[in-house]
Design a protein around this nucleic acid. Structure first.
Length: 425
DNA sequence: TCTGGGGTCCTAGGACCC
DNA sequence: TCTGGGGTCCTAGGACCC
């Protein structure tokens, strides 16, 4: 019998901001997506005012003014650093950890002969003390049940932040599951929920009691697996080492509509640069580049155009110059003048592991290849040390009229010397 | 005027081959 | 004029997650 814990940061991005600005405590706060588009994190107070996850921010202006909601641009540098700190603390509490997302991780608790609720409280306290971040913890015999337990710990105050489903009787567990909407189950999204409800499956308990074969008639094996996991049989294991990515993407909406080819070219070069850095970080090469551009689908009156094109490379590479060249070649082909473009994206596909080979030990005569590798390594090293975009391809542009909006971004409190918090004594 | 970004997995259906 | 069936591979699209 397995035991999993799921530790999840509460309102994670908002909590990160609050660590460095305590004046945000007890106030309605939201963090906006890139381009200040949508609300992607909300404090408890903001949720209570009815700000929905993913709500377009411009539609919330009146509400925000009325209640003094603080809206912050997203500061991913800060959140990633805080996430690393949180994960480092959590790692100490289990021999096995799977970092599942920026704000949550699974811990394996097999063979822990201790009161897991108390252990959970100890974890929460340590994380709060060492990072300032509040968390909730769900515990159960499968990952799906641990996720559900976490949901309960967050929504039902009486659990005080830790819910261990493993120690409930079957009867008590079912009572609890009966009161949870089936849409809250991990793996049941909007579409599958609608279909389940039509079949008379409304609660987590209904889904647990469904026949696996019956579910198989209407849904994929993924949903069948969910049913089995709800029944307490663990099918999903901890994945302690993150597998190498199979594709790497970089896309952004523009701060302003773009019509000129040159602006799109700059964007494609910038995004390719970002994606290629990630590619090299995981020591992969790619054999195809997919680029896409699109107009604003919300502007129904505008002519809509959203082409994409995959460019196959003659040889697998991680050279930003070659990748950008391929991307620009593709862009030429799909660009159509007269459209108001709102977004562009680059996906590196068909990834293969790079040969592990030190450049300095490179002994063959492929000088070009060697030079390209050295150039990329040098670029990465400089940007690592001197900050993002200390060196970049000139084609990416300097002015970047199209660059995304970030009207209210907080400092990079923990990662940038000039922006460190200074404590007055 | 303003509506995010980055992933994975699964399935259906077409292309192709014998 | 008549015109099979089955396997495999690939891709696009849909669903999910945070």
């Amino acid at each position: 019998m397995s035991t999993f814990a799921l530790v999840d940061g509460n309102n994670f991005y908002v909590s990160c901001e609050r660590v460095f600005n305590p004046q945000l405590e007890k106030r309605p706060v939201v963090v906006l997506s890139n381009n200040d588009g949508c609300a992607v994190a909300r404090s408890q107070e903001a949720k209570a005012l009815g700000v929905k996850m993913g709500a377009p921010w411009f539609q919330m202006q009146a509400l925000a003014r009325k209640h003094g909601i603080v809206a912050l641009s997203s500061n991913y540098t800060l959140y990633a650093d805080m996430s690393n700190r949180m994960m480092a603390v959590l790692e100490k509490f289990s021999p096995s950890q799977e970092v599942y997302s920026i704000d949550e991780c699974f811990l394996g608790l097999d063979g822990f002969h201790t009161d897991l609720t108390a252990y959970g409280q100890a974890i929460r306290q340590q994380v709060k003390c060492w990072t300032g971040l509040p968390t909730c913890i769900g515990i159960g015999p499968t990952k799906t049940l641990a996720k559900l337990a976490n949901h309960i710990a967050k929504k039902q105050r009486e659990w005080a932040g830790v819910c261990d489903l493993g120690k409930l009787s079957e009867h008590a567990l079912n009572d609890l599951l009966e009161r949870i909407d089936v849409g809250e189950v991990w793996g049941v999204g909007r579409r599958i929920r609608e279909k389940l409800v039509r079949l008379g499956i409304n609660t987590a308990l209904d889904l647990k009691r469904a026949e696996v074969a019956f579910i198989g008639d209407y849904f994929s094996v993924v949903t069948q697996r969910t049913v089995v996991e709800l029944q307490g049989v663990s099918l999903l294991q901890l994945e302690e080492v993150a597998p190498a990515r199979q594709q790497i993407m970089c896309s952004r909406s523009f701060g302003l509509p773009v019509t000129q080819l040159t602006d799109l070219q700059q964007a494609i070069i910038s995004y390719t640069t970002r994606a290629a850095e990630k590619l090299r970080r995981q020591s992969s090469l790619c054999r195809a580049v997919h680029i896409s551009i699109r107009t604003n689908p919300f502007r129904q009156k505008d002519a809509q155009y959203s082409p994409g094109l995959t460019v196959t490379l003659p040889k697998a590479t991680c050279d930003t110059l070659k990748l950008a060249q391929a991307g620009l070649w593709g862009l030429q082909r799909i660009y159509r003048p007269g459209c108001r473009y709102a977004k562009a994206g680059v996906i590196l596909l068909d990834l293969v592991p790079a040969e592990i080979r030190q450049t300095s030990l490179f002994t063959d005569h492929e000088t070009d290849k060697k030079n390209a590798q050295q150039l990329m390594q040098t670029m990465d090293a400089i940007n690592q040390r001197m900050g993002k975009d200390a060196v970049f391809l000139a084609g990416a542009g300097v002015e970047k009229r199209w660059h995304m909006k970030q009207g209210n971004k907080t400092p990079r409190y923990t990662t940038e010397w000039k922006e460190l918090v200074v404590v007055q004594c």
